[in-house]
Computed example of a mutant assay.
Amino acid sequence: MADLKIYPIGTTQSRNLNRFIEVAYELNRHNENWIAPLRSELREQLNSQKNPWFEHAEAEYFLAERDGKLVGRISAHIEKLTQKTPPEQGGGVDVGMWGMFEATDQEVADALLKTAENWHRNRGIKKIVGPISLSIWEEPGLLIKGHDHPPTIMMGHQRADYRAWIEAEGHKGIKDLFTYELDITKPFPPLIQKIVASGEKNARIKIRKVNKNNFMKEARLLMDILNDAWSKNWGYVPLTDKEIEHARHNLEPIVFEDLIMVAEVDGEPAAFMMTLPDVNEKLAEFKGKLFPFNWIKMLWWLRKPRVRTMRVPLMGVRKKFQTSRIASQVAFMMIEYIRRNSVANYGASRGEIGWILDDNQGMRSIATAIHSDINRIYRIYSKNI
């Protein structure tokens, strides 16, 4: 068998980062359900000099090569904010992570996973968690259900055989993340309609759109609600101010005011729901490249996008309201208003909610109440080293 070489490439050199990125394109080029991400965005994400995530993280990228051909890749990284969270939330001072995993076969997978283990072991890490690429806010988990359809925006898609290869190396599943899909052209069940109608009669509640003209201020408000609502969730780490600004810059072109709602109770911002048009439906045409002409097509499309699917990546209700009746009222009101806007203004017919943690019974109950079904499952693994 030909010699297999695994070697580090650093996190800044453009040529090496390009080679690291191209591995995924090569290994997935025959997969009709894999959506090629934009290379320009990946180069910015992976470059430690451009991504503010690296201000509280360190990483190394490894390439696998056989007979002069690239056959795999993996990242090994330490997220310092995760290390500050308690073990029951997936953190701890001795926890590291891995991600960006691609491999042509079991031999390559074994070698890459062992290389990531050794990198962590040399830094005193006792447990590795993954795949998380690179942050919990980006593409967490390995796809174990839903290989028969493309992912929506900001969700990953990996080959089905990766699961067996990873588990063969002793990695155990510790957390599943669900996405739910539903037909949004149909009205919600009568009970939900009654809850919405009741909320509309409640003078304490106001549902408003975000103001994109002051989007940075609105982004900080949404993150403040999210920090309060999600702070005890498994895997949660707060975004820094620079990360919020970075995310705002990347998301602003695909943010539309009538798809993001804020719920106020007695004048206090109490909850929010963010929905994004599935840009992947357009990106599928571009094969990962915006230049020289695809950026014009994208800008034209973004003027008034028409999509089949809307994705709800984020939703949160402040803790002080979570056990009250008003929580369900504002949640279902926001969902209903965005459902109507998605169909009327964007031609959407399908919604996707998530990801949602397997133990988040509140959000899973909401998904069940509106008659949505699990369409994709992502699994996060852990291994003591």
Rank of each mutant, 00 (worst) to 15 (best):
residue 9 I to Q: 14
residue 9 I to W: 09
residue 10 G to C: 09
residue 13 Q to F: 09
residue 21 I to F: 11
residue 25 Y to D: 13
residue 27 L to I: 13
residue 30 H to G: 10
residue 30 H to K: 15
residue 31 N to F: 01
residue 41 E to K: 09
residue 53 W to V: 01
residue 69 K to F: 09
residue 83 Q to K: 10
residue 89 Q to N: 14
residue 90 G to D: 05
residue 92 G to Q: 10
residue 94 D to N: 10
residue 98 W to I: 00
residue 98 W to L: 06
residue 103 A to T: 06
residue 107 E to W: 02
residue 118 N to W: 05
residue 119 W to N: 12
residue 124 G to T: 06
residue 127 K to T: 15
residue 128 I to C: 02
residue 131 P to G: 06
residue 136 I to F: 09
residue 139 E to N: 12
residue 147 H to C: 00
residue 150 P to G: 07
residue 166 I to W: 02
residue 168 A to Q: 08
residue 169 E to P: 05
residue 169 E to G: 00
residue 173 G to M: 09
residue 176 D to N: 12
residue 181 E to C: 09
residue 182 L to P: 01
residue 188 F to H: 01
residue 195 I to H: 11
residue 197 A to C: 08
residue 202 N to R: 12
residue 209 K to I: 10
residue 221 L to R: 10
residue 227 N to Q: 10
residue 234 W to V: 02
residue 238 P to R: 12
residue 244 I to N: 01
residue 255 V to A: 12
residue 263 A to K: 11
residue 271 A to E: 03
residue 274 M to G: 08
residue 279 V to D: 07
residue 280 N to D: 03
residue 303 R to S: 03
residue 306 R to L: 10
residue 308 R to N: 12
residue 318 R to K: 15
residue 328 S to T: 10
residue 330 V to H: 03
residue 331 A to C: 11
residue 347 G to C: 01
residue 353 I to E: 04
residue 354 G to E: 03
residue 361 Q to F: 05
residue 363 M to L: 09
